[in-house]
């Protein structure tokens, strides 16, 4: 067990020693994450439809130009946008509300926190099957049969096959699933606000609402911005619900950028173009994160200057 040498100090902190500690992680990360991601960038400038890669001609940005005239790409982008809209307009506000209520609770907060977090840990593949069962347009679709049961047969809809419905049906479950995650983040931030701030505010005669507006919200702005970045990345990378609920269909209506790239890669075997679509999502992610981060930090530094 004892591998430290007698004069261990001579090794200690030497470049060789440090190299031995850092190398395994950097090596594995390079080989299986960084190198493949660069390969993907390379594939996206090839015209490669299966076959040996050495035979695939270099076509420059032709794949990216092709996206401009591909009618499915804007459809897919719009679905990523729908998911982002649901995250920002529904998920984050609900998560914040729940967290705020839990932070005001005298007892039982940890039980609720446990319950609310359960959807987050459930494998998305099982949740997708479940949602498909709920929203199915067949006779046994849970939502539709529930609507009939309560005498609202006229509200029955083709949730998974109708244009205008399927796009939301494949976006909403992901937003719903992650409420608990963001709630825990907000709860930690809310509990972290010093009690003295509230005491000072109430001495100054601030009402409950005023405290919420002028003490609570400003103090969690940084965390809120971080959560917006996380949801941006989540929305751009979304694919699992469309893939498993509708396979992106019908007629690519519920496709997201990534699910469309999966279709191009594994169904159509257009590996060059498919990689380009995945690369687009990767680049948009980097740009969006940089923008929100910059914008958020600027606001914050202006606030506390």
């Amino acid at each position: 067990m004892r591998r430290g040498r007698k004069r261990g100090t001579s090794w200690y902190g030497s470049p060789v020693g440090i190299f031995l500690f850092v190398f395994p992680a950097v090596g594995v990360y390079t080989a299986l994450m960084l190198y493949p991601s660069l390969l993907s960038l390379y594939y996206s400038v090839l015209e490669w439809e299966g076959g040996p890669i050495s035979a695939a001609p270099f076509v420059g940005l032709a794949n990216f130009r092709q996206m401009l005239s591909d009618p499915i790409v804007p459809l897919a982008l719009l679905n990523n946008g729908r998911r982002l809209f649901l995250d920002w307009a529904f998920m984050l506000p609900v998560a914040l509300t729940l967290a705020f209520v839990l932070s005001r609770l005298r007892r039982g907060a940890s039980v609720y926190r446990f319950l609310f977090y359960i959807p987050v840990i459930l494998p998305a593949t099982t949740m997708a099957l479940l949602w498909r069962f709920i929203l199915s347009g067949n006779d046994y679709g849970v939502l539709n049969s529930l609507l009939r049961m309560v005498g609202r047969g006229e509200w029955v809809r083709p949730w998974l096959s109708g244009d205008g419905y399927v796009q939301w049906s494949t976006s909403f479950p992901a937003s719903w699933q992650h409420v608990g995650f963001y709630m825990v983040i907000f709860l930690a931030a809310l509990v972290g606000i010093p009690e003295e701030y509230y005491e000072a505010a109430s001495i100054d005669g601030a009402s409950g609402w005023q405290q919420l507006l002028h003490v609570t919200l400003p103090n969690i702005r940084g965390v809120y911005v971080s959560c917006m970045i996380l949801t941006l990345q989540g929305a751009l990378g979304a694919f699992i619900y469309p893939l498993l609920m509708t396979k992106g269909g019908p007629m690519h209506l519920s496709e997201t950028l990534i699910s469309y790239s999966l279709y191009l890669l594994w169904q159509k075997k257009t590996w060059g173009y498919g990689s380009a679509v995945a690369t687009l999502s990767f680049l948009l992610g980097i740009i969006a994160v940089a923008l929100v981060w910059r914008f958020g930090r600027q606001r914050e530094s202006a606030l506390y200057r």
Binding site: S37, S40, Y43, G237, I258, S275, A278, S281
Partner: peptide, 10 residues
């Protein structure tokens, strides 16, 4: 910043 989905084919 690297999404898992761009790693698949490589």
């Amino acid at each position: 910043l690297i999404p898992h989905s761009i790693l698949l084919v490589p």
